[in-house]
Design a protein around this nucleic acid. Structure first.
Lengths: 181, 181
DNA sequence: CCACACATGTAATATGTTACATGATTTA
DNA sequence: TAAATCATGTAACATATTACATGTGTGG
């Protein structure tokens, strides 16, 4: 059962910052990588088991607690660096909003306006969330080494969100003209 | 074997513009929706078979040719409008470049620079491709009804590409400072 | 006539989510 | 002590890609 390289990369990466349980792993990935990554528990547990078999991660002292904290091994760090060095296989795009807009003649201008408005709201929310994250990032001393790189990914999200906002406003104006004529 | 609503939407949508074979369907989706959508042949043929069973598409006069051209039925148009009206289920993001950059401390500044440069090149190429498409769009009279909506999706691609270019240039400057210090 | 594009379809494989089953720990 | 959260793991289902097997039409 070969668990995907991609999931292994994300999980090893997260464990390279700090040891965690599978459950916490999902939370951290959702909350911190959420803008550009996702993993489900159904992926995480089997992947952790596979990584453990390959000795790339290990269970930490399972003393008193019933929960299993995993940490990355030196071999795991080596493997992580290999995986990160592989060229990123771009996932196939599937943007439901654009698909609907493309066939907007079938959908009608009113529903299209709703789609764009929705995209606008989401992008605005995301921009706010990213700005909050940026502030938190500088308050966390344990991330000192990672902070400059993490800031790059936050910046990317901000650029994209602002682009979406600009596009949405433009498009709403266009759609208004389209609807009235 | 329930074929996904998402694939059905894309295929019915494409057939709403003109009848096609499965093979051509894939080409058109790759070439025209490629910026925000993808379907493989392994999806297209089974989906077409399912759609035919539901009478949402039909084979056109299979007279002399060996190839099977499908066209959308009135029921298919109705179904397409239903599908388009469903709120777009956002696919989970998986951006390999951002994942690598996030763990840039493990990967090192040189490889990170390469990742960003690569993103810059891709975005530049895409911007050029989109501008070509925009010109073609106005030259094609058969798309008159769809053109304004299609233009919206092209514009979205352009905004995103320009945002990526701006981010990449900024980030290269940041990485240069990071590497030299 | 040979290579290449057109065309169809299936099977193996990969990937991934959701729901289910189960239970411990914390907090109000 | 009841509810919420933390935690693990599996199974069923959904989705998707790639490779394979096979054949037709067309241009050089």
């Amino acid at each position: 059962m070969p668990r995907s390289d991609q999931s292994q990369t994300a999980i090893l990466g997260a464990l390279s910052i700090m040891p965690m349980t599978g459950y916490t792993l999902r939370q951290q990935i959702r909350d911190i990588l959420g803008h550009f990554w996702s993993e489900s528990l159904g992926q995480i547990y089997p992947t952790l088991a596979a990584l453990e078999q390959q000795k790339l991660v290990q269970r930490e002292v399972p003393g008193n607690s019933r929960s299993t904290t995993y940490s990355i091994t030196p071999a795991g760090i080596t493997r992580l660096r290999e995986l990160l060095a592989e060229s990123p296989q771009r996932g196939k795009p599937r943007n439901g909003t654009m698909l609907r807009l493309f066939f907007g003649a079938q959908l009608g201008p009113v529903a299209c306006r709703a789609l764009v408005t929705n995209a606008l709201v989401q992008a605005t929310d995301q921009l706010a969330a990213l700005q909050r994250e940026r502030e938190e990032l500088f308050g966390d001393a344990t991330l000192a080494a990672d902070a400059p790189y993490i800031a790059l990914t936050i910046s990317a999200g901000e650029h994209t969100a602002r682009a979406t906002i600009a596009w949405a406003n433009e498009s709403l104006a266009t759609l208004a003209r389209l609807g009235s004529s």
